[in-house]
């Protein structure tokens, strides 16, 4: 049986399902037999879930406006440069 340390080192592969079949079976066996690692897997999964659901906040309107002003200035400058070049 895998040790908890070995299990933890493969945790990402286990969660992201990027490990091969044999290792996956070993990891699964460890989780069913080790209550601590079971809790770690469960709470790490939930950690990822809550972050995935986190939508970016609306950008402050003045930040958006200043970006647009800077962008239009840049566009005008590039256009002028192309015309003269």
């Amino acid at each position: 049986m895998l040790t908890c340390k070995e299990f933890l080192n493969e945790l990402n592969g286990y969660l992201d399902q990027t490990v091969d079949k044999e290792l996956r079976e070993n990891l699964e066996r460890h989780v069913t037999e080790c209550p601590n690692c079971f809790v770690i897997v469960d709470t790490t999964k939930k950690t990822l879930q809550v972050y995935k659901g986190l939508e970016p906040q609306v950008i402050p309107p003045e930040v958006h406006n200043r970006l647009m002003v800077a962008l239009h200035k840049k566009m005008a400058a590039e256009a002028a440069r192309k015309r003269s070049g």
């Binding site: 933890l8 080192n9 945790l11 990402n12 969660l15 770690i40 709470t43 790490t44 939930k46 950690t47 990822l48 809550v50 972050y51």
Partner: peptide, 17 residues
């Protein structure tokens, strides 16, 4: 780094949740 980051966050959120 992703492994550490995930485990550290899990730990911080466990204190909360």
């Amino acid at each position: 780094r992703l492994l550490r980051a995930r485990l550290q966050l899990r730990e911080k959120l466990t204190r909360q949740f």
